[in-house]
């Protein structure tokens, strides 16, 4: 075996690890979703009259706990100085920008879409974010995506949209089309986040990029989004905070925050290792794992739509994973 072969086999092992992390991120993300749903069964998270406030509070508690976990991780692994110097650097600014876009446009657009257009239309539109990210990665990062990868990505997105499909109920409201636009904005926001953060992660370690994201996201939800939602809902903020602190749901959200951090860490590492398009397509398999985990708990009726969606995602994943050897050169410019 030549030195060149050894380098190639090491790169191949590196790519396989990246693909594994992408699938793992989807798997853990679905568990995160299950815990968030469980938290929503406890007061005050179960108050449907305060949907906007409750959603923002949930996201705030979740991301604050995740932020604390990743900061402790970085402290324990001796990366805190790296965090400060990365945030102040040029690639760190790309991570900061991407995180701000993801938190504000992505999550803000998603929430506004849910409120104005309802889940039936918002969920399938926002599920398009990996496709948006792949397109952006193709043009901005000049990522190599073989035709089979595009087909696989479309199958994953289509399957996830099928799995998350909720039949529309009632007549669309007066802000329906604005809601659709917000859902589109969310997909664009998350896609842009993936590309900006991946571009920054060329020089910033994924653990650090994630720490920057969670600090920013927690500040956004706790410092801006939740207080604004409380103001709009006419709720006494202090009483609501008291309810959150004493709620059993908060314990579930804290655990979900830990899982969310683990899932995002795997996802960020995967985006850095195998590229945005592949990592996103495999991450969206959370819809598939979600069915499996919920079925294990006996809480879901396996309908035809779910089954078709699950099979579609699985086929898409196989096509995206394809032959890892093709990934040895991720970007077109790098090959020149």
């Amino acid at each position: 075996m030549t030195a060149h072969d050894t380098a190639d086999s090491r790169s191949l092992a590196y790519m396989r690890k990246g693909l594994f992390l992408a699938v793992l991120s989807g798997m853990i993300f679905s568990l995160d979703g299950l815990l968030i749903t469980r938290a929503g069964t406890f007061a005050p998270y179960d108050d449907v009259g305060l949907l906007l406030l409750v959603t923002m509070a949930c996201a705030g508690v979740h991301d604050t706990c995740a932020g604390v976990c990743i900061t402790i991780y970085n402290w324990r692994t001796g990366r805190l100085r790296e965090l400060v110097r990365s945030a102040a650097s040029r690639p760190g600014r790309a991570v900061l920008g991407g995180s701000a876009i993801g938190a504000a446009l992505g999550c803000g657009g998603y929430m506004a879409g849910l409120q104005m257009a309802g889940p039936a239309y918002t969920l399938p539109i926002t599920t398009m974010y990996p496709a948006v990210a792949a397109l952006l990665a193709f043009f901005v990062l000049r990522e190599r995506i073989p035709p089979r990868g595009w087909i696989g990505l479309c199958l994953c997105v289509g399957g996830a949209a099928l799995v998350g499909y909720v039949p529309p109920s009632g007549q669309p409201g007066s802000f329906f089309y604005l809601g659709l636009a917000f859902a589109g904005l969310a997909a664009l926001g998350w896609g842009t986040q993936g590309v900006c953060v991946t571009s920054g992660m060329d020089f910033v370690e994924p653990e650090i990029a994630l720490n920057i994201y969670y600090i920013l996201s927690a500040c956004f939800y706790v410092g801006l989004a939740a207080p604004t939602a409380a103001l709009l809902s006419g709720v006494d903020a202090m009483t609501f905070v008291g309810d959150i602190v004493t709620s059993r749901g908060t314990a579930f959200l804290a655990l979900a925050g830990f899982l969310g951090m683990t899932s995002y860490l795997a996802w960020y590492k995967a985006m850095n290792m195998v590229g945005v398009s592949r990592a996103m397509a495999l991450n969206i398999s959370y819809a598939l794992w979600g069915i499996g985990f919920t079925a294990l708990l006996g809480n879901v009726e396996i309908t035809k739509t779910l089954l078709v969606g699950a099979v579609t995602i699985f086929l898409g994943m196989c096509l995206v994973i394809g032959n890892p050897r093709e990934m040895l050169s991720l970007r077109k410019d790098a090959a020149s």
């Binding site: 030195a3 060149h4 380098a7 090491r10 790169s11 590196y14 790519m15 990246g18 060329d202 370690e205 850095n272 290792m273 195998v274 050169s329 991720l330 970007r331 410019d333 790098a334 090959a335």
Partner: peptide
């Protein structure tokens, strides 16, 4: 690990160690 991640994105290459 850092060098490998830079190699994956085509920023560095490894030849003969």
């Amino acid at each position: 690990q850092g060098l490998q991640s830079l190699a994956a994105t085509g920023i560095v290459r490894e030849a003969w160690g």
